[in-house]
Amino acid sequence: MKWSEICIHTTQEAVEPVSNILHEAGASGVVIEDPDDLYKERDTSLGEVYELSPDDYPDEGVIVKAYLPVNSFLGETVEEIKEAINQLLVYNIDLGHNQVTVSEVNEEEWATAWKKYYKPVKISDRITITPTWEEYEKVHDDELIIELDPGMAFGTGTHPTTVLSIQALERHLKKNDSVVDVGTGSGVLSIAAAKLGASKILALDLDEVAVTTAKLNIKLNKNQDVITVEQNNLLDGVRDEPDVIVANILAEVIVRMTDDAFKSLKPGGKLVTSGIIQGKREQVKDAILNSGFELLEIVEMEDWLAMVAQKPE
């Protein structure tokens, strides 16, 4: 089978929304080539091997790649992707070079080669994310293992915004809490919440691909008894009064949902938000405070932020 590689040269700020556009266009996953990855200090305690070459990365900006099957609709799909990316300018998202190129590749060249770079990664005190094809044994008894197949969609679960969200859940989630996961994507935050002891989780996403992917990953991790996945726009129509709402989404979307989050949460409930680039810090902080929340913490990783807020008792 022949595939087209679509390559977008953009910025770190635009990685998440561009990746989402590619998923909605039919890509089952993305490759992110960020030159910052060349200089990260990495934990190799689990035996990970990192063999990164500067030749594979841009001198500046970030390259996001995806693969689409070559068919008669490819040209239209590429134009739709370009148009959707340009629409991000409405949200004041810096697109950088915003250069889109398309080339043809054979399935054998990419279908499995990338797997050698994806190894188990410990992302918090208790949680380790591992690919489904890797054999992994617990290092300590209370370690929690999340299995993901990034070939399904939405990456490996180790992006800073995901890591910050899971670490926040580990600090703030109490046993038997109820949770609503807004913009669930791969379902990884819902799975983490279940493994941390949540008793009831509602995972929501507007994207049909995300809903399917989340259900598969949740079943893979045997958490389907406590997690329900539904297609839904943010918190529209949600009548639950959860203990925790977690949302790893764009800052521009977070500011639109803080009022609804405040109304939905139980008194004393907590809002965990991530996906916030440094430049949007004050905008999101102001929205959270204006909705009535008390801000508990702001944590940072690389250029990303997560905020945890509480509804007064």
Rank of each mutant, 00 (worst) to 15 (best):
L202A: 06
L265P: 03
S4K: 03
V255P: 00
V209F: 13
R256W: 08
Y67Q: 07
G292W: 10
F73R: 12
K200P: 00
D149R: 12
G61M: 05
L271P: 00
E48N: 15
T101V: 10
G187L: 04
W133N: 08
D149H: 13
D181A: 07
P69I: 13
P58D: 11
G275Q: 03
V226I: 14
H9E: 10
V15N: 01
K285D: 11
E108Y: 08
H97E: 15
D125W: 11
L305R: 00
A306F: 00
S274R: 03
V100W: 01
I21Y: 02
K200W: 00
I254T: 09
E108I: 07
L265Q: 06
E83R: 14
V62K: 02
V238K: 04
L295R: 08
K285P: 06
V211Q: 04
M307H: 02
K82V: 05
I249V: 12
V180S: 01
D56C: 11
Q167K: 15
S124V: 11
A14M: 08
F154M: 07
R126I: 05
N290H: 09
D141M: 08
I201Y: 00
F293V: 04
T44G: 05
V180C: 04
G292M: 10
Q310N: 08
R126C: 07
R171N: 13
T132V: 15
D55P: 04
K115A: 15
L204H: 05
V284F: 01
T44Y: 15
L52C: 07
E13D: 12
D243I: 04
E60F: 12
A247H: 01
P160K: 09
Q278R: 14
N98P: 06
D286R: 14
D286E: 14
P312H: 07
G96K: 13
Q167R: 15
V121E: 15
I6W: 01
N176T: 14
Y91I: 02
T128A: 08
V308Y: 00
L206W: 13
F154V: 05
W304D: 02
N92Y: 08
D236E: 15
D205S: 11
E24N: 12
S45M: 08
E16R: 03
V121D: 09
H97Y: 11
T77F: 05
A111H: 13
N20E: 13
P242V: 05
W110R: 11
Y136V: 04
D125M: 11
I166Q: 02
D225Q: 08
G61W: 03
G96N: 11
W3P: 01
N233T: 10
Q310L: 09
E230G: 04
V18H: 01
E108D: 12
D225R: 03
G155W: 01
D240R: 12
T184S: 09
